[in-house]
Simulated assay, not measured.
Amino acid sequence: MAATVAATLATGVWLLQQGLQTAGPPPAPVTTTGTLASPASGDGGSQGQGGPPPLAASEPVRIKIPAIRVDAPVSALGLDRDQHLSTPPTGNKNLAGWYRDGPSPGAAGNAITIGHADTDKGPAVFYRLGLLRPGDRIEVTRRDRTTAVFSIDAVKVFPKNAFPDATVYGPTARPELRVITCGGAYDKHTGYRSNTVVFSHLTATR
């Protein structure tokens, strides 16, 4: 799944149209670049196991990230015929995707959401993902009318040729949410060189 996300999210069409070959989305700070602890602890590298109990499974319908002004619908994504994770269509730049065969946001386990950094129409839903900081909030509205509120633990940038599958996609003991997009420098021949990954855990429900 990781290799496919790295490849299919690397659109960069808008960057090419603007004549930009090395500049990409706003980067995460240097201190967040690298690896996290094993997800076996179930906390994405943070300490403690506090938080509300997991919610029942329910499909997400909207994601909000106030710190970077994201307010976007969420579409369910599956696997393509090559068993790779699909990505949101590029026709709607303000659209996020959720891996429907994994946990739903707020339920027990590690929920995966992805979105483009840019499309041919310009910066897309997760273009500013690298500007997020620990403690920032992510709100996911679900089909059952509950909202799962997540607190960000870390924002990491991983080279695509060294993407830590187990850390990003591995199971977690408590409800967690990963938000993934492209990041790093952009090359017109190979696309984005990295992926930006936000690690967060459930801190409230309403």
Results as ranks from 00 to 15, higher is better:
32 T>K: 01
32 T>C: 08
32 T>W: 00
33 T>I: 11
34 G>E: 11
35 T>R: 10
35 T>N: 09
36 L>W: 01
37 A>H: 11
37 A>Q: 14
38 S>V: 11
38 S>E: 07
41 S>V: 07
43 D>P: 10
43 D>A: 15
44 G>D: 05
48 G>T: 11
48 G>P: 09
48 G>H: 07
49 Q>G: 08
50 G>I: 15
51 G>C: 08
53 P>W: 01
53 P>Q: 03
53 P>F: 03
55 L>D: 03
60 P>F: 00
60 P>Y: 02
60 P>N: 12
61 V>T: 15
63 I>Y: 05
66 P>R: 13
70 V>G: 06
70 V>E: 07
71 D>G: 10
71 D>R: 14
72 A>E: 04
74 V>C: 13
75 S>Q: 08
79 L>Q: 13
80 D>A: 12
82 D>N: 15
82 D>R: 15
83 Q>W: 13
83 Q>D: 15
83 Q>Y: 12
85 L>P: 06
88 P>M: 01
88 P>F: 00
89 P>Q: 09
89 P>F: 05
90 T>V: 14
93 K>Q: 15
94 N>C: 11
94 N>W: 14
94 N>D: 13
95 L>R: 00
96 A>N: 07
97 G>K: 02
98 W>I: 01
99 Y>R: 01
101 D>C: 04
102 G>E: 02
104 S>C: 08
105 P>A: 12
106 G>K: 00
107 A>H: 02
107 A>F: 01
108 A>F: 00
110 N>F: 06
110 N>V: 07
114 I>S: 05
114 I>R: 01
115 G>T: 07
116 H>L: 06
118 D>N: 15
118 D>Y: 10
118 D>A: 15
121 K>H: 13
122 G>L: 11
123 P>W: 07
124 A>S: 12
126 F>T: 09
126 F>E: 05
127 Y>H: 14
127 Y>F: 14
128 R>I: 03
128 R>Q: 10
131 L>H: 08
132 L>V: 10
132 L>R: 03
132 L>S: 02
134 P>H: 13
136 D>G: 08
138 I>E: 02
139 E>R: 13
140 V>M: 11
141 T>I: 11
141 T>L: 14
142 R>E: 09
143 R>Y: 15
143 R>D: 14
144 D>F: 06
146 T>P: 02
147 T>I: 14
148 A>F: 03
149 V>D: 01
150 F>H: 03
151 S>E: 12
153 D>T: 13
153 D>Y: 06
153 D>R: 11
154 A>L: 11
155 V>Q: 07
162 A>L: 14
163 F>D: 05
165 D>Y: 14
166 A>L: 06
166 A>I: 06
